[in-house]
Design a protein around this nucleic acid. Sequence first.
RNA 1: GGCCUCAUCGUCUAACGGUUAGGACGCCAGGUUUUCAUCCUGGCAAUAGGGGUUCGAUUCCCCUUGAGGCUACCA
Length: 505
Amino acid sequence: MKKIRVRFAPSPTGYLHVGSLRTVLYDYLFAKHNGGDFILRIEDTDKARYVEGSIENLVKILDFMGLEYSEGVFVDKDNKTFQKGDFGPYIQSERLDIYKKYIDELIKNDYAYYCFCSQERLGEMRKNQQLQKLAPMYDGKCRGLGKDEIQKLLDEKTPYVIRLKVSKEGFTEFDDLIYGKIKIENKTIDDQVLMKSDGFPTYHLASVVDDHLMEISHVTRAEEWLPSTPKHILLYKAFGWEIPQFAHFTLLLNPDKSKLSKRQGDVAVEDYLNKGYLKEALLNFVLLLGWNPKTEEEIFSLAEMIERFDLSGVNKTGAIFNTEKLDWLNGMYIRKMDVSELTKLCVPYLIEANLIEEKDTRYKIQDTNELIDFEYLKRVIALEQERMKKLSEIGESVKFIFSDKLDYEKELLIWKKMTAEDAKNNLQLIFDELSSFEENDFQSEKLQEVLNNLVEKNSLKRGEVLWPLRVALTGLKGSPGPFEVAEVLGKEKVLRRIKEGIVKI
RNA sequence: GGCCUCAUCGUCUAACGGUUAGGACGCCAGGUUUUCAUCCUGGCAAUAGGGGUUCGAUUCCCCUUGAGGCUACCA
């Protein structure tokens, strides 16, 4: 059997779209699952849409996501792109000679022809066709141009394009790996432009030539290409090339079911990364948007995905990109994560929230000017690990730890039906109890034990002690438990905050 | 308009002729807890409509409806 070779072929038009992320994931998983090659090819045949820096950006995100490829475009340490592989440049704008050679072959064999029609004429033609409720299609005016006529126009430097000469008889059919049999009448296929007047190939020509030359066994791409696949098949036939397998993946949708677009929310992978979603969660989420493992498992590492992925589990209905489940997945991954790793990821958000700043190998708390180390940050992050959904929330949720002065209403200190006086008395009780503590004994278990005793000794309810204490320490309606917080804060700050609570009431 | 495609809870999906139509997210209720979150238990919620085929249709066929994609010298 032929070696499986799959390529991801994005256009460098800015950012990586989350829909493309799913496509590239499926490409990658399909290749890896089958022990095949995975390749990155850049399709930059539209000069007008090219965005500076987007190739580098794309490569970096794929690298960050762990979607490794063996041939294609890479970026070195100095942020310069380079290409690796045995099949010539992997950037289409660097392959112009190749396309020229193949287009000449098509013309020679009468599978393509010069077209000198102006944009104005074509526009006019389409308008009339639509008025007559006909499908807008090239009318074939230049199809029958004689050799001399063509030469004359060429000599006059008349701009031209080269079109595919579609035989309008019969039909073209193919068997898509996702959609099954697709059959369409050739008379509905337009004489597609293959070479633009600027000498660049269109997608149709470039992708067919490259997929053939690069020995791509499975052409995988988004559903929007399904209607133009017959044109591509006609091209393969014109060249006398073996036709690869096709697999079209569904589109990701807006809530209104239209093609996922920027107008209706964020679509760049970077946006979601910046919002504090983990790459593992993002990958897992898009995996499930159109593929199912045929079991009830839902959490997959990249290695597990490779092992389990196959095309038979891929759906043919578009999925709405609804991030509710992504939030849940993200929380799952955060909870499973090693605290050190999680802390490293959280540091930039703490800095961004202006809670801390880097100071040599340590960190300075902005509000108090204290210096703390990474180990301390780990303890802070550990407090929130269970309740965090996105990394971006961390600043807001641990702000109370780093604040010099807590800002909250005194009523918050009062639990359920207690009186203000009760709250005050209980805080004083706690204060007295903890005052005698050794700094070293300021540990969550120890504090828990002592405060439980305090509750019993005074015949109180746990909430009557723990609620005011927790609020005094955090100033929040919802927060981690008072013992854990107290341990992280340390004796001095704990006593000070309790005192401040007492004064407030 | 033409061509192509699709159609199960709000969302992601399972059930490749026989199930009380299953799971997950979200939502609601209860439990655990000082609070929030986690965790546990339970609940609400779907086969677009109409015809066939069949002993029997979510499943196969046809029509209708709805939705989407394509219809560029963009990909």
